[in-house]
């Protein structure tokens, strides 16, 4: 399926069915992240329950510590 992630059209394998797996796919699962799907910010506990569909608009911001 094709998702709009941080304003880029990105094709991902269909078996990535939810936000939690998507974060693993981008190796962001160990980070603290804030995820917005179609304009709604997800609660961190809902990442696994949030299904993804073709064309979803997703924003992902992850926290880093350096400076």
């Amino acid at each position: 399926m094709e998702l709009l992630i941080n304003n880029d059209k990105i094709k991902i394998p269909d078996e990535i069915g939810n936000v939690s797996v998507l974060l693993e796919h981008f190796q962001l699962d160990k980070h603290i992240v804030i995820v917005e799907v179609n304009g709604v910010i997800l609660d961190k506990t809902n990442h696994r329950d949030t299904r993804l569909s073709d064309g979803d608009k997703i924003e992902i911001v992850h926290f880093v510590g350096g400076g």
């Binding site: 160990k30 980070h31 603290i32 804030i34 961190k44 926290f63 880093v64 510590g65 350096g66």
Partner: peptide
């Protein structure tokens, strides 16, 4: 509010 917990590890200037 944003973090909810202290992030552990992750990338640093050391590794990335």
């Amino acid at each position: 509010c944003l973090l909810e917990s202290v992030p552990l590890g992750g990338l640093t200037c050391d590794t990335a």
